[in-house]
Design a protein around this nucleic acid. Structure first.
Length: 197
DNA sequence: CGGTTTTGACCAGCGC
DNA sequence: GCGCTGGTCAAAACCG
């Protein structure tokens, strides 16, 4: 598979400060009915030095150390080799995906929750778990279960403050949020019915 | 029985 | 070149 929007040159993803967590995406990342999870964006100026933000946000270490000041950032919105397109799975693809630095949209935020997995309305399938250095908690890897969607997320709990979960999203969903649609459909129907008169 | 989770193995990048 | 680390695969186990 040839990259759609690559000029053949890898480039470090220009990271920008982000104002999470309600980062607007084409279909919205978060359902309106977020559960017990309390989102904790930059409102609380915790820098959480024990989190490896560099590692989380820069694929293969593409972030310069100058950016350490901003704990919550997103990567370039460049579309990568896979961006939005489904990835035909075979081992060559796996290799090539490691070869290139990912430039997909990528951002992280922290939540204070007893549950590792916050319900963002999408369906995820876990495909891996790894113990990470300098953390007593493993990092979990999830992939969106939608056929054409290649969005991934990583979830890791802080070792210092075990109440805080760091979620890193990579990519943008190319389909509507199922739960959101479930919630909104009856409302829309009702509105359509009422506006007929 | 189909979808999801678990988990060990594999692989590539990076630093030394 | 080698070891470490992070990310992914895939088979087996698990679950509703």
């Amino acid at each position: 598979m040839e990259p759609l929007h690559m000029d053949g040159q890898e480039r470090p993803a220009p990271l920008q400060p982000l104002l999470p967590p309600l980062n607007p995406t084409p279909y919205g990342l978060f359902s309106p009915s977020l559960p017990s999870t309390s989102l904790q964006p930059s409102l609380e100026p915790q820098l959480l030095p024990e989190i490896d933000w560099i590692g989380l946000l820069s694929a293969q270490g593409g972030l310069s150390t100058d950016n350490k000041v901003a704990p919550l950032m997103e990567a370039a919105s460049l579309v990568s080799k896979n961006g939005g397109e489904e990835e035909k799975g075979d081992k060559d693809k796996r290799k090539s995906s490691k070869m290139k630095k990912t430039t997909r949209p990528r951002f992280a935020f922290q939540t204070r929750s007893a549950d590792d997995i916050l319900d963002d309305g999408y369906r995820w399938r876990k495909y891996g778990q790894k113990a990470v250095k300098n953390s007593s908690y493993p990092r979990s890897y999830y992939r969106c279960t939608h056929h054409t969607c290649n969005v991934k997320k990583q979830i890791q709990r802080l070792s210092k403050d075990t109440g805080i979960v760091v979620t890193t999203y990579e990519g943008i969903h190319n389909h509507p949020c199922e739960k959101l649609m479930e919630t909104l459909t009856p409302l829309l129907r009702q509105m359509q019915f009422l506006t007929r008169f």
